[in-house]
Amino acid sequence: MPSGLRILRGEDVYGKEGRTGCSRSQWYRHIAEGRAPPGFMISPQARGWLEHDIDAWIIARVEKGGIDKAPPATPEPYASMVGHNGGPPMKRRRGRPRKNATPPGVFGGPAEGGA
């Protein structure tokens, strides 16, 4: 282009060979959150970005020190292993689950000490 502007297509911006190092889904997530330049439609099915916009975005990320990430959520310890009615953690059985998982004496299961 005579003006020195270059239009980058998706494969030049994201992906393995892209300038940003983002995957396609990650790049569009940045756009949806307002953290990346949205680009413009160069045809009904193709989006393009100006090269200097992408370069400015990369430089801004380097100066900022990367992406703002929320700290990972800290789950309560053993939250998934709490027993019935908030009791102590249940032991997990090894192997495949049983076909009839009802405890003895509940809902027609064999009762303990049965005849």
Rank of each mutant, 00 (worst) to 15 (best):
G34W: 01
P2A: 14
R35H: 11
F40W: 04
E17L: 13
E33C: 12
Y14A: 15
P104C: 04
H84E: 11
D53K: 09
P2H: 11
R61N: 12
L50R: 08
M41S: 13
R94I: 08
S80D: 12
P104H: 05
E63Q: 14
R93H: 04
I42D: 04
T20I: 07
R6A: 14
I58E: 05
T20H: 02
I58H: 06
E112V: 09
G83K: 00
P71D: 14
P77Q: 09
I59L: 14
F107T: 07
F40Y: 06
P72G: 11
S43C: 02
A115K: 11
P44D: 14
C22M: 14
G83V: 01
K64H: 15
P2M: 09
S43E: 08
W49G: 02
R61Y: 02
H30I: 04
G113W: 04
V82R: 10
T20S: 14
P103H: 12
V13S: 03
E63D: 13
I67E: 08
I67N: 08
R98Y: 07
G105K: 06
P71C: 11
E51W: 02
R94Q: 12
L8V: 06
E76Q: 09
A70P: 01
L8A: 11
A79K: 06
R6P: 01
S80P: 01
